[in-house]
Design a binder for these strands. Structure first.
Length: 296
DNA sequence: TTCCAGGTGCATA
DNA sequence: TATGCACATGGA
């Protein structure tokens, strides 16, 4: 994909095959965005903001921090190649076509951690509501918007403060996790291989296997993880319900009368899918998630 | 009213 | 290792 940085003003994106705001922003990887009009989107990351204007032949990302968003939108990665590789899997052909403009964002580690702790067993609308309140209450005002709060700022919040945002039972996780990690620690963890990094993340309050995989994928940019949530579970049964893998597990199940869901755990599904897609697992996951939620 | 949402923590076997 | 249950909240 071709693009050009316009110093201090933004980034010009040429073509829409590998960059579509609706696909990038609505595939579940980010919560801090808003559709302002037919062809205008607003995106917040950390203490920065960008507008994306869709126009004939591409997009313009308007921002005072083009270099930051060049990395954020992962513009240097060749998604045409990734989609070509993924499409060798039959089940990926439709999802890749449907979400062809998806890119996996490289989001701030601290922000991503907090966001996905809140995302657990929650719906996207309410997650956005809670996060909006979190910015307003604890973040620094940046003119017409609020920055995502720093760890320092969140240390001033009580458990009740988090609950008052509507975080529900996740309030105690938030209170605890800001005392377990800071921005520097999260950055230092980048040096670890995925499995080791994953176990460090799982040790944090409110971070289980699914949230850890989201942080690994959307923050650390690890492609070798496959977050399994309710939508991916549905996808698995839809596309692989009759696969040899499933038939084999069922055959060996102690009680064959059990429903499929009772025999194959999310952990098994995760292993199956990461074996299937390897280093492209995370990419496959995003096309499939988007397809299951909005496609068909 | 009940179910569900990008699940996790904890006790138990 | 895996299973069962509690956990806040709001929309459908």
């Amino acid at each position: 994909m071709k693009y050009q940085i316009v110093s201090g003003k933004g980034i010009e994106i040429f073509g829409s095959d590998d960059f579509l705001p609706a696909h990038i922003l609505e595939c579940g990887q980010i919560f801090a965005y808003k559709k302002l009009g037919d062809n205008i989107w607003e995106v917040l990351s950390k203490d920065k903001k960008a507008f994306i204007f869709e126009k004939a032949g591409g997009c313009f990302i308007q921002t005072g921090a083009p270099e930051y968003f060049e990395n954020f939108f992962d513009l240097k990665t060749d998604y045409a190649k990734i989609k070509k590789n993924l499409s060798t899997h039959d089940i990926m052909k439709e999802p890749v076509k449907f979400g062809h403009g998806i890119r996996i964002l490289k989001q701030d580690l601290f922000e991503t951690t907090i966001e996905f702790i809140i995302s657990a067993n929650n719906n996207i609308k309410r997650i956005q509501l809670i996060l909006g309140r979190l910015r307003e209450k604890f973040g620094t005002r940046m003119g017409d918007f609020y920055a995502f709060p720093t760890r320092e700022q969140l240390l001033t919040a009580t458990e009740k403060d988090f609950a008052d945002l509507g975080a529900g039972y996740r309030a105690k996780y938030l209170f605890k996790v800001v005392r377990q990690i800071d921005e520097n620690t999260l950055a230092e963890w980048q040096q670890f291989p995925t499995s080791e990094l994953r176990s460090k993340l799982v040790s944090l309050a409110g971070v289980g296997p699914k949230v850890a995989d989201c942080i690994l994928l959307f923050g650390y940019g690890r492609g070798d993880v496959f977050p399994v949530d309710t939508w991916i579970e549905k996808m698995f049964w839809k596309f692989y319900g009759d696969s040899a893998f499933v038939r084999n597990v069922q055959k060996n199940a102690k009680n064959p009368a059990f429903l499929q869901q009772n025999v194959i755990s999310r952990e098994k599904i995760r292993h199956f899918l990461t074996d299937e897609f390897g280093l492209l697992s995370g990419f496959a996951q995003q096309y499939l998630f988007f397809f299951m939620r909005l496609g068909e």
